[in-house]
Simulated assay, not measured.
Amino acid sequence: LILGLVVLCLGLGAFIAIGAVASLKGVSPVELFQDEPSATATGEAPSAPEEKPGTPGAAPPTWKEKPPAPEEGVENPVVFVARKVGPSVVQVKLFLPETQRAPRQYIGGGSGVIYRGDGYILTNEHVVGKQIQGVNPIITVVLVSGEELEAEVVGADRLTDLAMLKIDKVGLPAAEFTSTESLQIGDLAVAIGSPFGLEATVTQGVISALHRQEYIEGRVYYDLIQTDAAINPGNSGGALSNSKGQVIGINTAILSPTGVDAGLGFAISSDVVMGIADQL
């Protein structure tokens, strides 16, 4: 009899406890024992409780929305720049004149940017401003069409390392120059020129730094744009452009232990270029 009373008391206690738990959860005692769907069964994890930003345990706010996918037909910005700026960039060649003992000899060159449609072309002074064996070299310019024309130096400034060439040709596609005031580190940078004589070569990178001052090969350069767009010997005098196809600098120099691109290229700022070009 005593054992029966103990069992009855325990059963009543358990029933009362189950009822209390069910009441706290807002369900019936029967529902308390039904299985809940698991993440494995449904294929979805249980939803986390909604939290407001700034409350303890809340997820950090998203810095930027995921960029939309490119729209169909939208052109790659580098392709756009190449098409817009490419026709305004020329190859510059230097030759020793023909003598009785030797034919005309190619000795090097660089690149240039058409500044005015009536035949004025910007390049670097170090490309065209030196004598070879005491002789002024013959300078030619190769247009994007492949036409090669003889050029003369009509102005040069060693301090800024800029020079102006003139060819007998009109109707040329002049490049659009713009100020660098709105440039930001990380912006797209596209270099166009003739590295190692390979005309119309296009490389891309970013603006790595602005307003650099560097001492390179006996010259002090001011207000340089630094870029990791590949620049090599022969790029000197070519264009560095932004994503809008506007020239923001004249490619001029590199820092490299090997003499070829190491991701440290420099261009003379277009603000410097526009300040001196009309005086050359």
Rank of each mutant, 00 (worst) to 15 (best):
L183K: 09
I185V: 15
G186F: 14
V190C: 01
I192L: 11
I192A: 01
G193N: 02
P195A: 03
G197D: 05
L198P: 12
E199L: 10
A200L: 13
T201Q: 01
V206E: 10
S208M: 06
S208G: 09
L210D: 11
H211A: 13
Q213K: 15
E214D: 13
Y215P: 14
I216G: 06
E217P: 15
G218S: 12
R219L: 15
V220E: 15
Y221C: 08
L224G: 12
Q226H: 11
D228R: 01
A229P: 02
A230F: 00
I231G: 00
N232F: 02
N232I: 05
N232T: 02
P233E: 00
G234I: 04
G234S: 02
N235K: 05
G237N: 07
G238I: 07
N242M: 09
S243F: 11
S243I: 11
Q246S: 10
V247W: 00
I248Y: 06
I248D: 04
I248F: 05
G249Y: 04
I250K: 02
N251Q: 05
I254M: 02
L255K: 12
L255N: 10
L255V: 14
S256Y: 02
T258N: 00
V260T: 09
G263H: 03
G263K: 04
L264I: 11
G265V: 04
G265W: 04
A267V: 07
S270R: 01
D271C: 08
V272W: 03
V272P: 07
